[in-house]
């Protein structure tokens, strides 16, 4: 039981981690992140980097969809803006990779705000369709503006170097990616304990009341689009530098849906939920792949239909998850914590 914890200042009462148990859990998690790469194989490091990139993208989408309630199907398009901007700025202008990442995030924020303008008039599913248009328009521009992007040809990005060290090796990139996850997560949780974040949530919960409380809906909706796209652009830029190659196929509507699934399964309106969802949706296909590969030896006759079984299992797991725990992995984790917090008086 958590008892005997008394806060004597508003500062400690308003802290992000209010109890020793919470602080210890966070410290353990950070320790794990710091130690992990020294024991991981190259393959698991690749997965960890993918999780990190997906987490940043999922936090970005969660700011917009989970916290502010503006459903977006433009995630893939916004990631494409980030990736192509980072790649083109590096290739064409010869700017250093770190500067290209910052520029890419800012450009994506601007593009996101532009496509957020319809949100003043449109809500819910109607807005989803408008953002779907954003997705299609961006991809169309990417594939057809050959002079700028190279069209459907892949854009090759030079390796990012820092003091003569190649950053995009799995081990080196791990530190960059997870460092940025830390910064993104910290900024987001900070945002949601100030009036900006509360304005976003107010718009989601009750937009008319929010307006009457003095919240400028247009300004804050655009701000939500811009901030969200900033982080989505960041994750796109990381993909460009990690893969050293940018192609449009990586940013189709499938990606938008995948990210929506991530935040729904992880937990809407939650930073930890974004991490859970990104981890789950990145690792599940990998686990299914490995399982399929090992099963192939046992049942050689089903090799041809293996991909379909994997796809179906992927879908099945997601459906089961939504039925059994509609509030996502975040809720599951909270239930586990509550169980131990209340133990042995669980009533």
């Amino acid at each position: 039981m958590v008892s005997g914890i008394f806060h004597t200042s508003y500062e400690s009462d308003m802290a992000l981690r209010r109890t020793p148990a919470q602080k210890i859990r966070l410290a353990l998690f950070i320790l794990f992140i710091l130690v992990f790469p020294f024991f991981a194989s190259r393959y698991t490091l690749t997965l960890a980097n993918q999780v990190a990139i997906a987490t940043i993208g999922a936090i970005g989408l969660n700011i917009l969809t989970g916290y502010t309630g503006q459903i977006s199907l433009g995630q893939g398009g916004f990631m494409a803006v980030g990736a192509y901007t980072a790649g083109l700025v590096t290739v064409r202008l010869g700017l250093p990779w770190w500067l290209s990442i910052i520029i890419a995030s800012l450009v994506t924020a601007a593009v996101g705000a532009l496509f957020g303008i319809p949100s003043l008039r449109l809500k819910g599913l109607y807005l989803a369709i408008a953002t779907l248009a954003a997705q299609e328009i961006i991809l169309w521009v990417v594939t057809h503006w050959k002079a700028l992007t190279g069209g459907v040809e892949a854009l090759v990005v030079p390796d990012p170097m820092l003091f003569g060290i190649r950053i995009n090796s799995d081990f080196n990139f791990y530190w960059l990616a997870w460092g940025l996850v830390g910064i993104t997560a910290l900024m987001t949780v900070n945002l949601f304990r100030t009036h900006y974040g509360r304005a976003f949530i107010a718009i989601r919960d009750q937009d008319i009341a929010a307006e009457v409380m003095g919240i400028n809906l247009f300004r804050y909706k655009l701000l939500a689009f811009a901030l969200s796209s900033f982080f989505v652009g960041l994750s796109g830029a990381l993909i460009a530098h990690y893969r050293s190659i940018v192609t449009w196929e990586r940013f189709t509507i499938d990606v938008s849906v995948l990210y929506l699934a991530m935040i729904i399964i992880g937990g809407l309106g939650s930073v930890s939920g974004s991490l859970f969802g990104a981890t789950f949706m990145t690792l599940l296909p990998a686990v299914l792949n490995n399982l399929g590969r090992s099963l192939r030896g046992v049942f050689p006759q089903i090799t041809s239909i293996m991909p379909f079984i994997q796809q179906a299992t992927f879908g099945l797991v997601i459906i089961l998850f939504l039925i059994l725990e509609p509030e996502g992995i975040k809720k599951l984790w909270e239930d586990i914590k509550d169980y131990f917090r209340l133990w042995p008086f669980s009533y």
Partner: peptide, 8 residues
């Protein structure tokens, strides 16, 4: 009709 921010 109460128009609070329900999830806050």
């Amino acid at each position: 009709n109460i128009e609070l921010f329900r999830h806050m």
